[in-house]
Design a binder for these strands. Sequence first.
DNA 1: GTCGATAATCTCGATCGTCGAGATGTTACT
DNA 2: AGTAACATCTCGACGATCGAGATTATCGAC
Lengths: 157, 157
Amino acid sequence: MADNAARARQELALLLRRLNVELDAVGQRFADRHGLNRTDVRALVAIMDAARRGEALTAGRLGEAVDLRSASVTALVDRLEKVGHVRRVRDPGDRRRVGLEMSDAAMAAGAEHFGGLAHDLVAAMEGYTDGELDVVRRWLEDMTAVIARHSRGEAES
Amino acid sequence: MADNAARARQELALLLRRLNVELDAVGQRFADRHGLNRTDVRALVAIMDAARRGEALTAGRLGEAVDLRSASVTALVDRLEKVGHVRRVRDPGDRRRVGLEMSDAAMAAGAEHFGGLAHDLVAAMEGYTDGELDVVRRWLEDMTAVIARHSRGEAES
DNA sequence: GTCGATAATCTCGATCGTCGAGATGTTACT
DNA sequence: AGTAACATCTCGACGATCGAGATTATCGAC
């Protein structure tokens, strides 16, 4: 039975990868619908997340978040600004900085797409008890910790 | 308490996204280490998965798997063949087809990187009971189903 | 205040991945 | 044989990204 148990755990790892693929496909679909590429979407998500935390992302910070050089960030922001998804806003306090604000239209589009997914996910969790969801949460946190270590190159065991 | 329950479920959705980001980072790291781009990695994974199922992927099938046109597939396979990760093998039965076989070196590199992750993930599941993992599996399958629907544009409710 | 150091952003030229259109070689059907 | 369907490859163009260097703004020392 130890074999069965190990196999069950491996299957969960595969399930996780399958989920990852599908989740990427959701992002790809959003990109296609709005004529954006993958980097643009990641940038919008980063700006959106920052906005949710009450911060206005600067161009430099955005570059760190999506791992692009300054030249590429300029081009990226140019693209997003041209189609009206973000605005450049000079920081009056430190006039070197350029803040990025999402337009209401972009915010609404993002909320419709990803918010709709979040809504359906929550709905699909209706049938679970609080105790079961606690188990899931603990498992997700454990797996994320392991994956995060690997993504930074700190192999384990 | 209904508020708390709803928030807990939303947090799980966010955890899932966080996990997705970290998992993508693992793939990115593998790409960096081997001088590949994201598409190349996706292609190698697709070939590897097919090999695991005992099938030899053709160039055309690979194009469908990674969603590229034939011209891009040719360039992709050229890149992978140049660095010795795959071989082109004409199908003797249907000589229009070009089969793709991974080199042992590439197979080993992939196994070391992603197999190591799988190993650590399984190890991190040691502390869970079979019953708990059943809950996790059910949850993962439910979430994947919802996400897959969204990735194909079939919105729900 | 003015000068050098620092920081954030932008411009320019080059490289590389992807695509569309069309060419080439292969198989299946009649 | 002749033709349609198929799989892959070649070619030219476009666009995203990068590295190096220029530009503009700020801060601290004197």
